[in-house]
Every structure is written in C-alpha cells, then in structure tokens.
Design a protein around this nucleic acid. Sequence first.
DNA 1: TGTCATGATCTTGTACACAAGAAAGTGTCC
DNA 2: GGACACTTTCTTGTGTACAAGATCATGACA
Lengths: 247, 247
Amino acid sequence: MTQQANQAAEEIYKKIKDEIFDFQLLPGDRFTETELAERYGTSRTPVRGALYRLKHEGYFEVQFRSGWRVRPFDFVHFDELYDLRTVLETAAVERLCRLENPPLGDLKATWLVPASRREHDARIVAALDEAFHCRLLEAAGNREMSRVHSEVTEKIRIVRRLGFLEQKRIDATYEDHAKLLKLINNHRAADACTLLRGHVTQNGTEARKITIHMLHEARERARLLRNPGKDAAPSRRSGKSAPITLS
Amino acid sequence: MTQQANQAAEEIYKKIKDEIFDFQLLPGDRFTETELAERYGTSRTPVRGALYRLKHEGYFEVQFRSGWRVRPFDFVHFDELYDLRTVLETAAVERLCRLENPPLGDLKATWLVPASRREHDARIVAALDEAFHCRLLEAAGNREMSRVHSEVTEKIRIVRRLGFLEQKRIDATYEDHAKLLKLINNHRAADACTLLRGHVTQNGTEARKITIHMLHEARERARLLRNPGKDAAPSRRSGKSAPITLS
DNA sequence: TGTCATGATCTTGTACACAAGAAAGTGTCC
DNA sequence: GGACACTTTCTTGTGTACAAGATCATGACA
C-alpha cells in the first residue's frame, strides 16, 4: 500500500474538526498555529494545511499576522444552509419516489420501530438523524449532490445537535422519519416533499433558538466528560474571546 | 488597508485555474511543484497551498513523492454536475417566479435583443451564458446555494465552453434564455422549470460530445494566440502524458 | 489618573533544508 | 538483445529560519 499524500495534515484536519464538534473550539475563540502544532506534536506546516482547508470551508478566519479565530455565529448563514439542505433533500426524495424499490431497508430498520425501542440519547439520535438524511441522498445516486449535502450537514451540525435535547423533538423526529419512509415507499412524492420541508424547517427554527450560552454549557459538559473532577482553567487567549458576539 | 492573508498563494491559485481554463493544463497532464514555483517566481510553499486547494476541488491529484496530475475526464462526474446545476437552478427559478418583480433587468438587456445584435464569439457567449445562470441564483437570494452553484459552474466550464462552437447552439441559447426570462416574468414556474431542465440537459448532452482531441485543438489555438508563429515545443513531462485516457 | 510614544514580543507568510521514497537511468550478466 | 541489480536523480512531505508587521506592555509626561 502506497503512503497517503499529506497524511499528517489530513489527520490534523480531522482532529481540529472534532474539536469544533466537541465544543472545544467555540465561535469567537482565538488560537494560533504554534499552539495547535504543539498540541498535536508536529510543526506548523501540516497545521497550516488543515487550517486553510477549514478556513475555506467557512469554519475559521485568519487575520494577517494576528492569529486565527473561529467564525462567529451567523444565523442568516445557518438559514441558508438549512434551505440548501431542503432543496437537495427534496430533489433526492422526488427521485426516490420514482423508483420501484427505493433502497432504504437499513433506514426502515432504524426508524420504523416501536416507541419502546427508540433511542433517547441526544448525541446518538443526532448522529442517526444525520445518517438518515445523508442516506436519502446516497440512495438518490448523484455523488456530487451527496458530497455537497454532506458538507452542508457538517456545517450545521453544531446547532443541529443541540436541537435534540428535548424528548419531544426526538419523538417528532422518529414520527417524521417513519412517515417519510412510508410516503416514499408509496411513491407519494408531493406529500413526501411537503413533509420533508416542514421537518427540516422545524429543525431550522429550533436551531435559531440555540444560544452561545448553550454552546458554553455544552463545552463545560464535554470537558467534564473528558477530565472528570477538574475545574475549568481557561487559557490566556480563550479568556480574550469573551464577550462573544452574535453577528 | 491591511494586507490580505496568503496573498501569493491566492494569486497562484487563480493563475493555475486560468491555465486549466485556457487549455494549458489538460486532463492527464503531469507537472511538479518546483516547475510551477519557477514559472511563477516563488517558492514551493504558496504553490503547494494553491495546489492542495485545487486538489480538494477535484481538478488535480497528487501521487506520493511522484508528482501531480490533472484529473482525467470523467463523464459520469460531469453528468452529476449538470444534474446538480439543474436542481439548483430550478429551485432558484421557482423562487423567482414567486416574486412580484424579479430583479433580472440586466439579463433582459443582454438576452432580449434582436438577432442582429447577438454576440457570435463563442468565448464571449460562453461567458455570458455562465453569467446568466449564475445571475439566476444570485437573484434568488440564497448565498450558499449561489456559492455551490458557482463552484459547479467552474467545474464544468472546460466542456461547457466548447459547446458554443456551433452557431446553432448559440442561437438556441439566446432563444431559451429569452423564453425563460419571459416565463419568469409571467410567474409560470412549471413551464420555466421544464424549459430550464431541457436547456441544461441539452447542453449536458452536447458536453458529452467533447473529446480529448477537441481539447488538444483548443490548446493549440490558445497557444498560437499567445505566441503567434512559434511551433509547439512539448516539455519533457507533458510528452509523458500521452496517451490520454478517458475514464 | 489618563494618554501617548516606544520598545519587546508574538504571529503569520515565505523561503529553504533535509528525509523518505519513487522513478528513471546505467551497467552487468546471460 | 533482454532481464535484472544497482545507482543516480527527482519529487513530495515536513521541519525550521527569518522577515514584515500586528499586538501588547512599559514607562514618560501632562
């Protein structure tokens, strides 16, 4: 097996993205290349590769000779991403409705279950929900649409996950997904798209309620999970990031 | 004015992309980082930044310690891109049809003209055509959809441009665009989407007819335009790229 | 105390050095 | 001539040095 190109940069890219999704890097946080290089035990070179990729994807911004910053929250942008998601997913659902036997057996096994066998953990449901919607696009068969949809999915992940903290949102998700699968199976494209639009819009509305305060709470919870019993010890730079502003 | 971040890499990125669109870098061509660095008078560092971005966008591929290569043609991929384009553009057109006064005045000035005032130069028509379709997405108002659409547009540019070499394709474009603008103005969403789908599909079908031979001819024409009278002098590596295979 | 100038420190952007390994070239043996 | 082993020459991936400039700290002065 020939070695992968830019292996170190690739790994660091994933690790940094995990830090975003684990609420370790929050909107407004500032950091430097040297900081990350030391944390990951490499030089700045692969770190820069990863950072510029994440910058291009919209997660970070760099100020000339003055450090990096996690892009502040932009709810208009989240709205646009949810909107794009809807467009892609309705297109996928329309196509699936035209198929004789849509290849969605695995989804039925997960979502068409009695209420007693439903997942309750918000983290797990969030992951399953992502997988559900991504699976719709994969099944529709256009890899490019699937790729774009995955990127969108990742970009809204940070707010989307917090939308499953209430049990009633989890229940609604199970019901909507079950209904959608049945409608697709019965080739009822128009109804399926209407349902899907409402489902995604509802989730987008929930995401609007996410506050920076909730993210900080989530960070604290995640930190305690990693280092139980230790008090918070904010670094020099992370202290500078407060107060965090919404744009 | 504060200086732009990564200015050199950004400029080189644009220059390399221009080389692709000017048929100087054709599918299958091989090259090295040092080669480009010398051509642009910089070190490898900014060149690498540009190359990895272009790699991520799907234009190039890198082999571990063995040079770079322009990705070979993949018609399935082009089909998927045309398909995604259709999805995005029909979504935009549906929204525009719901507006009282769609802000498309500039497009009417360009496309609703008597046949005598039409452009004939394939290059110019190709650029106008791109602008037309991008404008539809801008007018629809979702910046994220617009951004994705622009990326798709760039990726199919190389085959799309060659679709305007016949006068009848140019005429068809003028007619379709004019009809589409009128349908949008009359809020006839369904008809507009049907027309648009046919229009893009037709162009995608034309793109299927593009051959590697046509690209080589285009490269030769472009080269003669830059250096009139000089004979071709293939470099050591570009000779290695033949025979070019379609995937 | 508040403000401004000045110097020290930090940060990114670029160039360059070196290592690991791939590819190509060269000579030898049959 | 052809196959094979060996050497030489690239080529990318990574670490590091240095420059330009932004930011911060310090201290003088009103």
